[in-house]
Design a protein around this nucleic acid. Structure first.
Length: 759
DNA sequence: CAGTGAGCGAGCTTCCGCTTGACTT
C-alpha cells in the first residue's frame, strides 16, 4: 500500500495525476460530492442556528467505503478543485474519513502537468473553513428555498411541482419572453434599394433612411425617376475582426448548437467522452484561461503550420460574473491533433474545440471597408454603397469568416451615376427572439445564475416538470408589399412571406404561466433576476470572513419564511387563476375556467358548498377548445365543450359509441375500449365515421396480437413485443423470438415485473 | 400503455451543485 493517498474529484483526472506522482502515491476519486443533506427531509434545523444534517449520498456509499479503506494507513492529500464546492468536498471527505480538516494536507493545481503537481505537493495548506462556510450557506439557502417553496405549489397549484432559485428564474425568463412576443406590435417601413450604372458595372446601394409607408415610398420612387445621382464621397476604413476566447461550457453549448445543431445535453455527453479519452481538458468550466503550456503548444503549432505572422499568444479575461477559475478553458490536450474522437459526433465537436482554441491564439483578421455616399438632385437623401475586402485572413484560417469579398466597381468623387433600377420593400420590426436551450444558458450565465455543471440538468428539469416545451413553430403567412420603379412608373406588388416560424425553441406551458404568476406575486424577491447576484456577494463576504454564514442565512430566512406563511392565505381560486366566463344560457349556471389538477379546465356550475351533501348537483368539467388559453377563452367557445362526453350512436352490434377529450387527446369509447381520434373532431364525428374508425382499429389490433392464452397475451406494441395479463406489461427480451413465447414463458416473465419508474 | 377533474385518505412529491456510470427508450 502506498504511503500517500491523493483524492481528486474526477476519476479521469486521477488517472492522469497518478502517472506523475509515482509509486508512493495512490490517487483516488471522490466522484464529486460524497455527502449532502438528506433527500427526504429538509435536513436543516432552522431554530438551532440552521444546523445541517449531512449524510453520505446513497450512490456514494461504495466510494466512501473504498476511500476509508485506502486512507487507513496513508497520509491523505485533498486535491479537489480550488473553488467553493471543491473546498467543501475536501471538508466532507475529512468528515467521512474521520480526519481533522485543520491538520490535513490540502493541495490545488490549475493544470495537470508534472511541474504543477510537484509544486502543489511541495506546498500543501489546510482546508479553508471560511470557504467551506460559504458553500454551506449556499447549500442551505437553496435547500430552504426549494423545500419550503415547492410544497406551497403542491397545495395551491398542483402536487409534485417544484420551485427553486435557478429553475424558477429560468422558467420566468421564458414566460416573460413569450408574453413580450405576444404583445409585440409589428411596425412596418420601406427599405429602398437601387442599382446604378457605374461605368458599365452595377453598383448596388441602399437609401440611408427608411420610408414610413406605401405613400411615402411611391412618392420617393417617382421623384427618384426624375432625379440625377452622383458620387458624393468615398471613405476607406480599415477594420479588424478579433478571434473569440477559447470555449467555456456556456460558449461551447452555444456554438455547438449554432454550428452543429446539438442540444445542450448532447454537447455535454459528447464532450464528456472526449474528456475521458484524454482529447480535451475538463468540459465544465467558466474560465477562458489557458495554461502557459497550452499557450506555448498553440504557438508552436500556429508558427509551424501557418507562419509567424499568424501567431499571437493571448490570455482572455473571464467575463462570467460568478467564475470560480478552478479549471482552464475547454481546449484540446494536444494542439497538434486536428482531429480526434471515435464517431462523427465526437469528431465534429472536437474539431470545433480545436479550431476555437487555436484561433484564440492567432492574429485578428483585417479588412478594408469602402463606403460610398451617393447624392441625389433635388433631395438631401443619400444612398450608401459599401464594399468589404479581406486584407489579411488571420484566425479566419481556422475559425469562421467564410464570407465572400464584396468589391465596389471603381468610382470617383463627382462621378454621375445613371439609375438602372430602384425598388422599395416593406420590412417589419421584430420582437426579441424566443430562447433556445443555448441562448437560455447564455442568459442565465449573464445573470450569474447556475453553474457550468447545472446548465444541462436545469433545462432537463424545467421540461420534466411540465413548465417548458421544446417546439418547432410553423409561423403564419403575412403580406409583404413591394414597389418597383419601372419605365417611369411605380408598380405595386405584394408577396406572401412567413412570420414567426421557429425551430427548437423553448415555450412556456400554461402551468408555467400560472406558477410564475403565483411566484412573482408572492415571492417576488426570491425569483428576482438579481437575487443570485446579491447572494453571491454575501457568499464572497463569508469567504472573506466579513460575514458569518449564520448571519447571512438568518437575515435571508427572516425575510423569506414570513412570505411562506403569508402565501397560505392565497385562495386556490386565485392561485389557479379562476375566471368567471358568464352564464350558460341553457341551464343558467355559471361557467368558469381555471387551472385544475390536470391542467386548464372549464367548469359548468359550482361545486357543492357542503362537501358531505351527496345529493347536491356536481359541476360538469370539460377541457378547453384547441387553440384557446386560460386567459383568452370566451363563453361562446366554452359552451359547446360541455356536450362532451357525447353519445355518437351505436355500432352494428348495438354497442354505444361515445367521444370525449382526455389526457392524451380526443378519443372514442366503445364498450371498454378506447380509440384515439386523430383526424376527427369528437364534437362533430358522425356515427358512420365512428364505425369506420372502430373497424380500422380492430384490424390494426388483430395484427398486434401474437398469441392469446386467455389469461395472458403476447402483443406487439409501439416499443416492441411484450406480454400482458391486462394489468402488468413486461417487455420480451430482444434475444428471444416473440412468436415462440409459450404460456409458461409468459407467466414467468410476468412473475418478475420491472419496477415502475415514476414519470 | 394510459383515458382524470368530487369521493376516503395515506403517502408521496421538492432544491442546487459536484461527479460518473447503469439503465431505458
Amino acid at each position: 500500500m502506498p504511503k500517500n493517498l491523493v483524492i481528486v474529484e474526477s476519476p479521469a483526472k486521477a488517472k492522469t495525476i497518478a502517472r506523475y506522482l509515482g509509486k508512493d502515491f495512490a490517487v483516488m476519486s471522490s466522484f464529486g460530492h460524497i455527502r449532502d443533506l438528506p433527500k427526504k427531509d429538509i435536513g436543516v434545523d432552522v431554530s438551532n442556528g440552521f444546523k445541517p444534517t449531512y449524510q453520505i449520498s446513497q450512490d456514494k456509499e461504495k466510494v466512501a467505503a473504498e476511500l476509508r479503506k485506502a486512507s487507513k494507513s496513508a497520509t491523505v492529500w485533498l486535491a479537489s478543485d480550488e473553488d467553493r464546492e471543491g473546498e467543501a468536498i475536501a471538508w466532507h471527505v475529512c468528515a467521512v474519513l474521520d480526519i481533522d480538516p485543520e491538520k490535513t494536507k490540502r493541495i490545488v493545481f490549475h493544470e495537470i502537468t508534472e511541474p504543477a503537481i510537484t509544486a502543489a505537493v511541495a506546498n500543501p495548506r489546510t482546508i479553508d473553513l471560511k470557504l467551506v462556510h460559504a458553500q454551506q450557506a449556499r447549500r442551505i439557502l437553496d435547500r430552504l428555498v426549494g423545500y419550503e417553496l415547492s410544497p406551497v405549489l403542491w397545495k395551491k397549484v398542483r402536487t409534485g411541482l417544484s420551485a427553486g432559485r435557478v429553475q424558477s428564474v429560468a422558467v420566468r425568463l421564458i414566460v416573460e419572453r413569450e408574453r413580450e412576443i405576444k404583445d409585440f406590435k409589428h411596425a412596418s417601413s420601406f427599405k429602398v434599394s437601387a442599382v446604378f450604372n457605374a461605368g458599365g458595372h452595377n453598383l448596388e446601394a441602399e437609401l440611408e433612411k427608411k420610408l414610413r409607408n406605401t405613400k411615402n415610398a411611391r412618392e420617393f420612387l417617382l421623384s427618384a425617376n426624375k432625379a440625377t445621382f452622383q458620387v458624393d464621397d468615398i471613405v476607406q476604413k480599415p477594420g479588424s475582426r478579433s478571434p473569440g476566447a477559447p470555449f467555456t461550457t456556456s460558449t461551447l453549448q452555444q456554438e455547438a448548437s449554432r454550428r452543429l445543431g446539438y442540444s445542450v445535453r448532447q454537447t455535454m455527453t459528447v464532450a464528456q467522452k472526449l474528456y475521458e479519452h484524454g482529447h480535451i481538458t475538463y468540459m465544465r468550466t467558466d474560465s477562458t484561461n489557458l495554461s502557459q503550456l497550452a499557450v506555448n503548444a498553440a504557438k508552436e503549432y500556429v508558427v509551424a503550420t501557418y507562419g509567424e505572422k499568424y501567431s499571437r499568444p493571448t490570455q482572455y479575461k473571464t467575463k462570467s460574473k460568478s467564475a470560480q477559475q478552478a479549471h482552464e478553458a475547454i481546449r484540446p490536450t494536444h494542439f497538434n491533433k486536428p482531429s480526434a474522437g471515435t464517431d462523427s459526433g465526437q469528431k465534429k465537436l472536437y474539431e470545433l474545440i480545436w479550431r476555437r482554441a487555436l484561433a484564440s491564439q492567432m492574429t485578428p483578421a483585417s479588412v478594408q471597408r469602402t463606403e460610398a455616399t451617393i447624392a441625389m438632385s433635388d433631395r438631401t437623401d443619400k444612398f450608401i454603397a459599401t464594399g468589404e475586402i479581406l486584407v489579411f485572413d488571420g484566425y479566419f484560417k481556422v475559425y469562421g469568416g467564410g464570407k465572400d469579398d464584396k468589391i465596389l466597381p471603381s468610382i470617383e468623387k463627382g462621378q454621375q451615376l445613371p439609375l438602372k433600377s430602384m425598388e422599395a420593400l416593406e420590412t417589419f420590426t421584430r420582437p426579441a427572439s424566443r430562447y433556445s436551450e443555448a441562448s437560455l444558458v447564455k442568459k442565465l450565465e449573464e445573470l450569474g445564475i447556475g453553474r457550468p455543471s447545472t446548465y444541462a440538468p436545469t433545462i432537463g428539469t424545467i421540461q420534466d416538470r411540465g413548465y417548458i416545451e421544446k417546439k418547432d413553430l410553423d409561423g403564419e403567412p403575412r403580406k409583404v408589399n413591394q414597389l418597383v420603379l419601372k419605365n417611369g412608373k411605380v408598380d405595386e406588388l405584394s408577396q406572401m412571406s412567413t412570420v414567426g416560424a421557429d425551430k427548437s425553441k423553448l415555450l412556456p406551458t400554461q402551468l408555467a404561466e400560472v406558477v410564475t404568476d403565483f411566484l412573482v406575486k408572492n415571492f417576488a424577491s426570491v425569483i428576482d433576476y438579481d437575487f443570485t447576484a446579491n447572494a453571491e456577494g454575501e457568499l464572497d463576504d463569508i469567504a472573506d470572513g466579513k460575514l458569518t454564514w449564520k448571519e447571512m442565512l438568518d437575515k435571508f430566512y427572516k425575510h423569506f419564511h414570513p412570505l411562506i406563511k403569508k402565501s397560505e392565505n392565497v385562495s386556490r381560486a386565485e392561485a389557479s387563476q379562476e375566471r368567471k366566463l358568464g352564464k350558460d344560457p341553457k341551464s343558467g349556471k355559471n361557467v368558469f375556467v381555471r387551472y385544475g389538477r390536470y391542467g386548464p379546465v372549464l367548469q359548468l356550475g359550482e361545486a357543492p358548498k357542503d362537501k358531505k351533501d351527496k345529493e347536491a348537483p356536481k359541476p360538469h368539467f370539460a377541457p378547453l377548445p384547441e387553440g384557446t388559453t386560460l386567459d383568452d377563452v370566451t363563453l361562446m367557445q366554452a359552451i359547446p365543450m360541455f356536450a362532451l362526453p357525447r353519445i355518437v350512436g351505436n355500432t352494428l352490434k348495438d354497442e354505444e359509441i361515445t367521444t370525449n377529450i382526455g389526457r392524451f387527446g380526443p378519443y372514442l369509447k366503445v364498450g371498454s375500449a378506447f380509440i384515439s381520434l386523430k383526424e376527427h373532431d369528437p364534437l362533430k364525428i358522425s356515427e358512420a365515421e365512428a364505425r369506420k374508425v372502430i373497424i380500422s382499429k380492430q384490424k390494426a389490433d388483430s395484427k398486434k396480437l401474437l398469441a392469446d392464452y386467455g389469461e395472458v397475451q403476447v402483443l406487439n406494441g409501439p416499443y416492441g413485443p411484450y406480454v400482458t395479463d391486462g394489468k402488468i406489461n413486461v417487455k420480451i427480451p430482444k434475444a428471444t423470438d416473440p412468436k415462440k413465447i409459450t404460456e409458461k414463458d409468459a407467466l414467468k416473465l410476468l412473475a418478475n415485473p420491472p419496477r415502475k419508474k415514476r414519470r
